[in-house]
Nucleic acid binder design. Structure first.
Lengths: 185, 185
DNA sequence: ACCTGAACACCGTTCAAGT
DNA sequence: ACCTGAACACCGTTCAAGT
């Protein structure tokens, strides 16, 4: 009967999010899973938003995202988000709500050899792209789960589409008349 | 005492969203504003998600987004979303949830002179970027409103940052050692 | 210091029943 | 056909009171 800790709450929240998604992560269910009353959580976290920021930070810390290679960083960020239901949506929210909680994402701007503001804009563009892409992927997965839409048939073009966007951001659009996309790494 | 119509509900919902944001747009408040009981709405719309899709579609229809010029389309999409609180978030959700409701967005792929799948990926990349960028802008505005953060001081760099990302997607990153970003239109 | 019990002020959605 | 009344099954958050 050891006391509840903030870390324990964040860890349980991450698990609940991974299993049941954002709609399934309620303070009441979380309390139930931890064997306490809902109100007890508020002794350790200020609010649900505060909790979500901590969960997002933990997901990123575990991901160990490359800081020197933007293309690799994009792949790693996507890979870290995919196994967490609604992971991209949570990350987007926290990225806007408390960007300093997401230091690994801010570090990405060092990967761009550009003068001060541009490096940041470039990093933001890449991050927006990855979060937007994965959010759409995961939303479609949620809809497939709810049987509103069929699951995407073939995972291979999804990977290709993702890399295409990353390449476009890092190297520009392929020339108009050309028949092939740029290939990555 | 004319009967309620679906269009009237969608219009009122758009107004409520613009004024009070996503958290302020509840079925109960919407019913109150229309002078009916909450249950009455469900005779005209299937669910809140269904309603949001209709609202997003209307926002896009009014926007009259250019289909031939991607850079202009990006500006117009942003301009259409900014006056609606949480507009980008709603659009993102609907874009994943019911993309066919957002035909003007799908049309954008015609603006890219690329072979079939690439044109679509390019359009998706641009749309993801715009929605991600504006979502962050609007989330920060929401936080400023709630006095959690100060409002962004200077709107001019925001415009510049937005165009920088659009240019990156349309023309590629500026060369590494260079001191200036590409300039648009 | 840490948690319970109980409440407050809400939600989206359904559905018999009325007109 | 269209809407009301009333309920169902939830939410996040607060806070006095207990230990």
């Amino acid at each position: 009967m050891v006391a509840l800790s903030r870390d324990e709450i964040v860890e349980a929240a991450r698990g609940l999010l991974a299993e049941r998604g954002l709609a399934g992560l309620t303070m009441r269910r979380l309390a139930e899973r931890l064997g306490v009353q809902p109100g007890a959580l508020y002794y350790h976290v200020a609010s649900k938003q505060d909790l979500l920021a901590a969960v997002a930070a933990e997901i990123l810390e575990r991901a160990q995202i490359a800081t020197h290679d933007p293309a690799r960083a994009a792949e790693e960020l996507r890979a870290a988000l995919l196994p967490i239901r609604d992971g991209a949506e949570v990350m987007s929210f926290v990225n806007a709500f408390r960007p300093d909680a997401l230091r690994p994402l801010r570090m990405l701007e060092r990967a761009f050899p550009l003068p001060a503001p541009q490096a940041r804009w470039a990093a933001d563009t890449l991050v927006h792209y990855v979060l937007g892409f994965v959010a759409e992927e995961q939303n479609q997965a949620e809809l497939a789960r709810a049987r509103i839409r069929q699951p995407a048939p073939d995972p291979q073009p999804v990977e290709e589409a993702f890399r295409f966007g990353v390449d476009v951001i890092l190297r520009g659009l392929p020339p108009g008349g050309s028949a092939s996309a740029p290939t990555s790494s």
